[in-house]
Structure formats: structure tokens, C-alpha cells
Design a protein around this nucleic acid. Sequence first.
DNA 1: GTGAAAGCGCTAACAA
DNA 2: TTGTTAGCGCTTTCAC
Lengths: 361, 361
Amino acid sequence: MHDLLFSGAVPLAESQHDMSKKFHVTLHDIAQQVNVSKVTVSKALRGHPDISAETVKKIKSVASELGYFPNYMARNLSSNRSHTIGVVVPKIAHFFFSAVIEAIYDAALENNYDIILTVSQENVERELRQIRSLLSMRVDGIIISVTQQTKDPAIFYQVKEMGIPVTFMDRAIDGEGFNSVVADDFGGAYTATEYAIKSGFQRIGHLGGFAHTMIGKERFRGFKAAMQHYKMPLHPEWIVRGGFSDADGYDGFMKLYESHKLPDFLFAVTYPVALGVHQAARQVGMNIPKDIDIISFGPHGLNEMFSPQMNYIEQPTIELGKKAVELTLNNIRQRDGFIPQKITLPTKLVLCDQEFKKVAS
Amino acid sequence: MHDLLFSGAVPLAESQHDMSKKFHVTLHDIAQQVNVSKVTVSKALRGHPDISAETVKKIKSVASELGYFPNYMARNLSSNRSHTIGVVVPKIAHFFFSAVIEAIYDAALENNYDIILTVSQENVERELRQIRSLLSMRVDGIIISVTQQTKDPAIFYQVKEMGIPVTFMDRAIDGEGFNSVVADDFGGAYTATEYAIKSGFQRIGHLGGFAHTMIGKERFRGFKAAMQHYKMPLHPEWIVRGGFSDADGYDGFMKLYESHKLPDFLFAVTYPVALGVHQAARQVGMNIPKDIDIISFGPHGLNEMFSPQMNYIEQPTIELGKKAVELTLNNIRQRDGFIPQKITLPTKLVLCDQEFKKVAS
DNA sequence: GTGAAAGCGCTAACAA
DNA sequence: TTGTTAGCGCTTTCAC
């Protein structure tokens, strides 16, 4: 029995210069064994209705006996579909992105699609390089969360021209003809600010993100809108525009601290920024929330560690990933008939509770 | 000028049934424009020394003018190398894994290799499915961190038989002929326990992971070794074997608490377990570190948020990723001549300081 | 220095 | 129901 096992594959190997091919069984090998043609095997393995149940059974058994794995490179080349979605993110080791990425993987699997993930590391050149790479891999669609520096939409138009749907996730750039799935940054910021106002804080400050990013803009806009709606004066000295990292939060707080006119409440643009604030506050001997309270966007399950816990705006990470995949898939399936969609998912104000929640396993 | 731009590609498109191929420029298109053969273009674009500098220049300019992207499916099919490493991890949204994954991506990029990442979600069937998928994509090698339930090494032997190097990362399984890169779990656990003993704690307990996993075993072994070395009695009632998640930590603590004989120090097998302990302790009104102190493996930059901060064993996440890639690449390049390596990377005891550190950006 | 021919493993049209 | 023929886009001989 075992002599037969590689009877198709081994002779093939002998004639190969590349030894790595040694044990790569092909349709041809199976066809020989079963005494049918390659095409029959191909059809049988893919569940094509043409082939008789008996033949299918025989073919399948031989296939698994030989340890056959379809060669996707060959399959994709001839069918001209890769059944793959390319993804570009700025970071992986990041609370928010790692959660979204996982959701993307799960959603894709449910739809029998593969994901090819790439990382730009917040670097525009690397981002471009990765997009090119995905194009060369002939992905069927691309989901991207751009870097904080990405401004030029040219490449995205080029991708679209190639017939490859583009879906922006969370971080979008201006431009027509693309899908996008973003969290309701404006609404979240508005709610957070409103909460501070209604809680009676009088000196409310904002540590905002980069002014040129959608997120930085929208969250600042939500902050302003709430302040204006409740007739609170906007104090420019309490508004610091920086980046999205903990270092930015640290620096921002220190800047306020050194000016000797700290607000009594801070709305931080991201969770890392809030962490930086915590760090800085501890360093100068100030207590949160006693001396100064804070709220920020989405800690993504990390809040449990804090004592006392922080209030926050929950971002729909799972939904973002899921929607991005669905949208991209719809676009891929409908191709030209598809009208690009822009989806905004709601955020939620979470006031800290003491109930036990799962963090990460 | 623009009429020429797609003169090669458009007519080709007309004859295609699949519209997605509309604007996919091929070597053939470039060849026509420059009036040379496909082969010349192929060689020129790959920097083959055969072609004259002038021809190369002309070809490259036309290629970029037409917006040419090499088709990796075709390239890989004919060259029988994918220049790709497949990766399987149990989780992405996890402090430890997301850090390692990012390191893997960076290391691969430096070596001009692509990564295809898949997630098993701690599910053995899904893990198998993803491995199959990677094999079908004809990855050149596989880096894998197995699920907590993975016991059967059969598939890994099969992969190896196909001439595809396997490197276990962090979570290894027994078996010969595979590479592995793991953190020094034994040493880390020993050091942690030793620290507790030297700090004067008398009732030292351990919240251990699954007894069937390498990590669970090694960390427990390190704990025991240190206890024995310092002649500390091992109290079975202070040793709880569970899993690696926060829920396990929560449950473990509660079990000890309800038994009314809590230790005064806990060595937790993972950071999530320690988080669960924190959560539980807070719930029953106990203070860490006053009432009971704790140490655990690797919070990966999250420690800054704690107040007071926790001591921990630092895991070499970046190094794990980097080494895994290097090892796999070496194995790929040397093929049969390669002797599989088992690398253990040192861990480090970190006693909390107040200095500002970057968390995540 | 350049190119013609053959083939990678598979699928899609069309015959038989 | 099954097989034949023709590619997919590229690389690899090997001849010129």
C-alpha cells in the first residue's frame, strides 16, 4: 500500500531540480492513480456537479491518501481570483488595532476568504510598499487604515482603477469611490464632553490628536460642539493638539502643568494619551480622579486593571472589522454595479463599573 | 501620450471575460511597447545581468508608465518559491502575541520576505485548517505558536516531509526535526520565586497554567526548583493549576480566598492571570501589594498603568519574533543541510520603577 | 545581449 | 459523465 502512496509524486520529483517539490502531489498524480483525467479530478475536488458520486468518492480518497493540497498559486492564476483580501494597518501591537484585526480574520473565515495582513508602522513609504505587494499578490480587495501622515490619495485611485475595491477602516482619507467604516468620533467626543459638563466640571480641557487627521478633527469638533451647545467658554490654553501616543499625553499634561493653570477635567483623544497623562500626573504627585479627572476613547478591555477605573468612550472594534470585511466582500462580488458606502458605527459612553469582565486570554 | 498608455493592455482586456483583469498590465504588454521579447523584459525587471543598461532603462520606464505590478501568482508558480513565511498564532488581540507578530513582520520585511498570518483562536481544528491553507499557498516555511490544546504532532511531521521548515515560537510541542524559539520559562519562574523568597515572603503560592502545556510545566518547574533550593516547604493548597486567562486568575484567587488560607505572595503564570487576581482581590476588599503581593510573567508595556506597579518577568517578545524569522529563513535557504535548532531566550526580572516608559502608540 | 520554446498546476471552454 | 485543448503570467533552459 505504501509503495503506491507516492507512485505519482516520486518519479515526478526525480526529474525536478528543486528538491522542495519532492512531495508536492498534483492533480496529475491523482488522475493517474484513479485512471481519469486531470480535469475530472479538478472538478471532483471542487464539488462540480458534472462528476458521478462514485468517481468523486474514489478521487477524494486517493487525494487524501496522497496528501494532496491544492496549489493556490496555480488555481488563482488560472481562475484569476485570489479569494483573498489584503489588509494594511499602521500597527499590530496596539489595543485597538489588534482587536479589529482579529475581527477581520474571523469575519473573513466565515466567508471563506483569506486575509493577507501587512503593517505600515505609521510609515508612508512602507505603506505604499505594502500596497504594491498586495497588488502583486492579486488580492481581490483591500482594507486599509492609513498612517497618520498619509495624505496623497493617488495610490488608492490607482488601486480602484485596477478594479480592486478599497475600504478605509477607522482612519479614512478624503476621496470619492471608496468604502469606509469608521467609528462615530464626533458623537463620541460630544457625549464625553457633555458628560463632563453635566458632571459639573468647569474647566474642561482637551488633549487632541493631529489636526490633519480625520480622527483628530472629528473628536475636536465633537468637543467644541458640546462646549458650545452648553455655552461653555473654550479656553485655548486648555486645548493641546499633539499626537495619539502616550508620549503625547505625557507631554501634553506636562505642558499644562508647567503653565500652572491646569483644567479640572481632560478629554483625551486616545487611550494611550490618557495613559501618558496618568504617568505624568503620578510623577508630579497629582491624583486622578481627585485632582483632575479624565475621559478618553476606548481602552478595549484594559480598564479592569485600573484602580480607580477610568470612564471611557467604547469603540466598536469587532463591528468595525466585521463591517469592513462585509463591505469589501459585497463590493468584490458586485464589482462595477456597486455604489461605495460610507458607514459610521456608534460609540458608547461607558462609566466605570466594578463588575468582573474578561480582559484577554 | 495617453493613447499609448494602455495600448498594450486595453485590447487584451476586450478579449477577457473577467473585467477585473481590465487593467492588469503584463510582461507581454511592456514587451510590445519596447519591441523586445517577454523574456528580455522579465530579465530586465529582475536585474538579470544579461540585459544592456540601455534596454533596462527603457523597459523600466515603460513598466512604471503602464503601472506594471509583477503577478506573484505567476512568478511563484513558475519559480516554485513563494518568498513567503506562513505564521499561525492562537490570538492576535493579546499583549504578548501582538508584540511578537509585529516583530515577525519587521524581521521579514528586512529580509525581503512576505508574511502570511493566520489565527487559530486557540482552536485545534481551526489551527489545522490554517496550516492546510498555508500549505496550499505554498509558503516557504511556517512559524507557529500552537494552541493550548494541540497535542498531535502528526501535521507538523507532514509539513516537514513536504520540505517546509517548521519553527515553533514560544509554544512548542515535543518532536524532533523542528526549530523552536522559546523564552526561558524555567529560569524566569525560578528568578521570580527566588525574588519572593529573598524578599521575606513565607507563604508563597502559584497560580499555574495548564499542566499539559510546555509553558505551564516549565514555569511550575522553575517555581518548584527555587522553593526547593531555598528549602521552602511546598504547600499544595497554595498551588492552583488552571489556564492562562484572567478568568482563571479570578477563579484561582477566589478558590484560595474561600479556603480561608491565602498565601502572602502569588506567582501568577501569566499577566492576564495576574489581572484576574487584581480584579478578584479588589472585589473582596483586599489590597495588593499590602495584603498579598504578586508577580507574573510579562505585562509587555502595560505596567505603567498600574498604581502601585507590579513586578514582573519580562519576556523577549521582539527577540522571539526576530529569531523565529531568522531561524526559519536559514532553514529555508539551507534546506536539507540544515540541522534544526532549539533556542531559549533569557527572561528578565523587572522590579517596578517610576520612570516614564513608552507604552504603545 | 536577446529570444523561442517549454512548462509550473490549475481552470474554463468546448467536444465527445 | 468525462476528456481535450488552451491558456493564466511568469521563469527557465538553451539556442542564436
